[in-house]
Design a protein around this nucleic acid. Sequence first.
DNA 1: CCTTGACCTGGAGTGCGCTCCAGCCCCCAC
DNA 2: GTGGGGGCTGGAGCGCACTCCAGGTCAAGG
Lengths: 141, 141
Amino acid sequence: MRIAEFAQATGFAVDTLRYYEKIGLIEPPLRDSAGHRIYGPAELRWAKFLGRLKTTGMPISGMLAYARARAEGEVTTPERARMLREHRAEVARRVAELQDCLSVLDSKIASYEATMSDAKGPDHVAEHTGNTRRTRPQAAR
Amino acid sequence: MRIAEFAQATGFAVDTLRYYEKIGLIEPPLRDSAGHRIYGPAELRWAKFLGRLKTTGMPISGMLAYARARAEGEVTTPERARMLREHRAEVARRVAELQDCLSVLDSKIASYEATMSDAKGPDHVAEHTGNTRRTRPQAAR
DNA sequence: CCTTGACCTGGAGTGCGCTCCAGCCCCCAC
DNA sequence: GTGGGGGCTGGAGCGCACTCCAGGTCAAGG
């Protein structure tokens, strides 16, 4: 599999793949006689997993730490497990936060639609912060 | 409320608030006799709502479009409702995507933990893309 | 033989969203 | 009245994650 096809398969741009290789996120793949990169299924699995990490917002520095641990072999299994557990927790927090925001959006959309369905509408639609319960603990001056 | 307290209350940095004002995301607030910005509750509600938009990944260009529509008054209510509905849909997609990634992380963590609980562990933990169903392990290895 | 097109390299450039800074002003407490 | 703290401005700088480019190699098709 050459780089164009690999890019297609992983969702990364060709330039991004070379960049990832340059910074050590992806191992330098084999080359064919012309010096072109040839990727195999193992590379594909790894790149797809990197895509998951990226999608979940892991910064490159984090992916790099994981990649380096991975390169050290099985001895780093506990470390990698810890990294993933921490990241998982972070992602779960973000999901919860987004869901909270979704409900704010929903109520704002609902109030817009209520306004629109009125002939004239109520005064105006004010921003409301969606503090239905427990927002950020506020340092009360 | 002066800018430091406002920053505290909104979660934005002081510099960020001035930056948002400069680009038109926040209306220039009143000034006190010393020329210092004075923010009121309406500004607070708006800034908190902006924080929600930001948290949900809306780019500044999007927030700006919304802010401009808002500045035009009630006539833009349908437009703003549309913007929020579209954004809401986008956020919902992202949540679903993250949840999908969460399950990938979970299964990977589980396989790490299985490896760790073995005295020696199975061969190794391969990257698997999270296609738990469908995708048959390709014969080659 | 010549063109085409995919790929190569090192390095420069980009867009986003802030973040920091110098140099200044104003008010208040001591 | 002096020192300190908070605020002001315009503009430069930064970190991240790419993205683009010039100039080159190579293999195959016409």
